[in-house]
């Protein structure tokens, strides 16, 4: 049972909790202290190297990926709610109203058979967006997630033109931030506060993955349709079951969106093989409009509580 696996963290670094109370208070304290001296606290500067050098760290690096089981997704029409994944995402990231980093589309499959398709950032390995960024503001981290450094982004929107999936969003005006966000410890893995004139997108909840949690959309999905996977350990979980990632893909005819473009996305979709999924062509199922974080009444405090509740996950698996 003892599965010894070295921490995905570089040695000596504790898992980050971008919004813990301690950090927030620390931030306020620091701001107060700095207010006296008139210095503005500098946001975290991460290395925005577009190319990740192979590092000789001790353990295998996580390589995050995602599987979305289309057989399970009903666009939350059956529970008469807006897509819960989108709402969870909006609440987790305080996604500026008007944007959706994750969208649920109704798609026609082969033969005009309709089904729902949640579309988030594909975290492409051969990402067109990171290639075209003139300042290296969007880049892959060592775990294969495409991040945006909002301190560096110049807002040229070249990446938005390059993205073949249309996942990127832009803060055209001053985005609405939750109260207190100004003191949040910005990092590309959890970009808060949102900044005017910069590009935003899903970053696979990199901050949650670090803490060993599945992304907000996956934990928000009532059907357990969205799974987080680690390609290094070849394991995936939808928050309920743990399964072998490669086996699950191969067993279920997994595919990726626009695979022929060669972008090598890290998000796989499961249409199954012959199982019935989606809905009848005559069923006019329209997903409801997801609520923004404001409409959900989300605050930083509530988010922190939510994170705390997730700290103690059930360890009972499929057994």
């Amino acid at each position: 049972m003892e599965t010894e696996r070295t921490s995905p963290q570089p040695a000596g670094k504790s898992p980050r909790q971008p919004l813990s109370r301690r950090r927030l208070l620390g931030g306020i304290g620091a701001a107060a202290a700095l207010g006296a001296t008139g210095v503005i606290p500098l946001a975290n500067h991460v290395s925005a190297e577009p190319e990740v050098k192979a590092s000789a760290s001790t353990g295998p690096k996580r390589q995050w990926a995602m599987v979305i089981d289309l057989r399970k997704c009903e666009g939350c029409t059956t529970i008469d709610k807006a897509p819960q994944c989108v709402e969870a995402c909006n609440a987790e990231h305080f996604v500026p109203p008007g944007q959706e980093w994750l969208q649920v589309f109704e798609v026609e499959g082969p033969g005009g058979h309709p089904h729902f398709l949640p579309r988030l950032c594909m975290q492409c390995e051969n990402a067109p967006c990171t290639k075209v960024c003139p300042v290296g503001a969007t880049y892959h981290n060592e775990e294969g997630i495409v991040l945006i450094n909002h301190d560096r982004c110049i807002g040229c929107r070249m990446c938005m033109a390059a993205c073949p999936y249309g996942v990127r969003r832009f803060n055209w005006g001053e985005p609405e931030n939750p109260p207190g966000a100004a003191l949040a410890n910005y990092s590309p893995e959890y970009p808060l506060p949102h900044r005017k004139g910069t590009v935003e997108k899903c970053m696979l909840c990199a901050h949650r993955a670090k803490d060993g949690k599945i992304p907000a959309c996956a934990s928000g999905c009532p059907m357990f349709a969205i799974s987080l996977a680690d390609m290094t350990e070849d394991v995936a979980t939808n928050g309920k079951d743990v399964f072998k990632f490669s086996r699950f893909l191969a067993d279920n005819s997994a595919y990726r969106l626009k695979e022929d473009l060669g972008t090598k996305p890290r998000v796989w979709y499961i249409p199954g093989h012959g199982q019935e999924y989606g809905h009848h062509v005559d069923d006019n199922l329209i997903p409801k409009e997801p609520r923004s974080w404001q409409e959900q009444g989300m605050t930083l405090d509530k988010l922190e509580e939510k994170h705390k509740a997730e700290e103690h996950p059930q360890t009972e698996g499929a057994k």
Binding site: I154, C156, R157, N171, K196, G197, T198
Partner: peptide, 11 residues
Amino acid sequence: DMGRPDRLWHL
């Protein structure tokens, strides 16, 4: 056309 003309120097 830039969203952040103040960061032109980033180039």
